[in-house]
């Protein structure tokens, strides 16, 4: 929701980033205020996941220009774990498997780390078990997933739920959900979207990364950005996603200057 006089959570200006000498992000500007839901759409390879990982601080990327501010902090000066502890969360497009580490152990360590950072109470294994089971109900997740190794052998959809479960546990200020709809059938999509809607409120913000309009029927964005070749080429309201759905990306290519100009 767009809230009057809400504070700016994220402010990205002229962000450029490369990997192995190849420039992927070519000057990104993006401002996200608390309460807002933004969608970033774009074809495969347009740089959406790169932007997400750069925001989260993945060390493989070299930042070659621009600034990122998160609340009052210079994000580029912070290590990934410090960014996470400041309230930035990334639900991965491809969640990582960690064989041998029980999911519940991992979730609890993450939860307690964030709680400690906020000066709040940490939970022992028994307390945490009760707590996490409640959160799992929200996402219609089987508690068996607590005892399995983190993401190991999870189906695509199960991995996505496990990501949103972490979002629910960690209560981030800014969540970036990278392709959370991929691999989900329509019922699962509704469940997960419902979970996300329950977590969002006027004090936090969400960036949905997707290349389908479908998700946006269930989690309705306030802003839609279209990315192409490492730049945001169009920005609009939720209707832009529908327009894109009917007209296709070729229309974007043909019209990006004029429309971008019109919005600016």
């Amino acid at each position: 929701m767009i809230v009057n006089n809400s504070k700016t959570l994220l402010s990205v200006e002229g962000l450029r980033a490369s990997i192995n000498g190849t420039e992927i992000l070519k000057g990104i500007d993006l401002t996200v205020k608390s309460g807002e839901i933004h969608a970033i759409m774009g074809l495969n390879g347009s740089g959406k996941s790169t932007l997400a990982k750069v925001l989260a601080g993945h060390s493989a990327y070299e930042i070659t220009g621009g600034t990122i501010r998160f609340e009052d902090k210079d994000l580029l000066g912070l290590a990934p774990e410090e960014r996470a502890r400041s309230g930035l969360f990334l639900a991965f497009q491809y969640p990582i498997e960690i064989p041998g580490v029980a999911n519940t152990q991992f979730l609890r360590l993450a939860y307690n780390t964030i709680q400690a950072q906020r000066g709040k109470e940490e939970l022992d294994p028994l307390e945490f078990d009760d707590f996490v089971r409640e959160k799992m109900k929200l996402l219609d997740m089987n508690p068996d997933f607590l005892d399995r190794s983190v993401n190991e052998g999870f189906s695509g959809g199960e991995k996505k739920r496990n990501e949103i479960l972490q979002m629910a546990l960690l209560e981030p200020k800014l969540s970036i959900l990278d392709e959370m709809d991929s691999g989900l059938d329509i019922d699962a999509l509704k469940t997960v979207a419902n979970g996300v809607n329950q977590i969002t409120n006027k004090d936090n913000a969400t960036i949905l990364v997707t290349h389908y309009q479908r998700l946006l029927d269930y989690v309705v964005p306030d802003f839609v950005h279209i990315m192409q070749s490492g730049s945001i080429v169009m920005t609009g309201g939720k209707e832009l996603a529908l327009e894109l759905e009917t007209r296709g990306y070729d229309w974007v290519t043909a019209n990006k200057q004029s429309i971008a100009g019109a919005i600016a």
Binding site: K53, A56, G57, H58, S59, A79, P80, E81, R83, A84, R85, F89, L90, F92, P95, I96, I98, G100, V101, Q105, F106, L109, A110, T113, I114, Q117, Q166, L170
Partner: peptide
């Protein structure tokens, strides 16, 4: 793997120890 842990606030040392 380490990036995944760090994105959840867990530093490399703790991550390695857990793995």
């Amino acid at each position: 793997q380490l990036f995944y842990f760090s994105q959840r606030g867990i530093n490399a040392e703790e991550a390695v120890s857990m793995i």
